[in-house]
């Protein structure tokens, strides 16, 4: 997690939120997969916020969470949602709108 100082103003900044329910294997797998992907593709341009619904169940309504784990792309808009343990990288990239082959913003 490497937040940029003026994150919100940057159009190329990624704010990701991962909803989990306790330390289940699916949640851990999801986090590992997400972390790896972000490091590969969005190094220095992202922040991951992990929300444990067992601790803060009231947050589930706001982002319309029903499946666990759910990854929500808060920024850039529009909001995108990906459910599952993110093991299918191709689907994740499609879901996040990151082109797998022609990665235009790779640093």
């Amino acid at each position: 997690m490497k937040p940029k100082p003026d994150a919100s103003s940057d159009i190329d900044f990624w704010k990701l939120r991962l909803y989990v329910a306790g330390q289940t294997s699916k949640s851990l797998t999801a986090f590992t997969n997400l972390k790896r992907l972000c490091e590969e593709r969005l190094q220095g341009r992202y922040v991951i916020e992990v929300i444990d619904l067992l601790k803060t169940p009231q947050l589930a309504e706001d982002d319309q969470i029903l499946a666990i784990p759910t990854l929500v792309r808060k920024l850039p808009v529009p909001i995108r949602k990906i459910i599952g343990d993110l093991s299918n990288t191709e689907r994740v990239l499609v879901g996040l709108d990151l082109q797998p082959a022609s990665d235009r913003r790779t640093t």
């Binding site: 909803y19 619904l53 029903l66 499946a67 666990i68 995108r80 459910i83 499609v94």
Partner: peptide, 14 residues
């Protein structure tokens, strides 16, 4: 987008 295994625990929690 579905990418991998999931359950509906979120619904249960809500």
């Amino acid at each position: 987008e579905e990418a991998g295994e999931y359950d509906l625990e979120g619904l249960f929690i809500r």
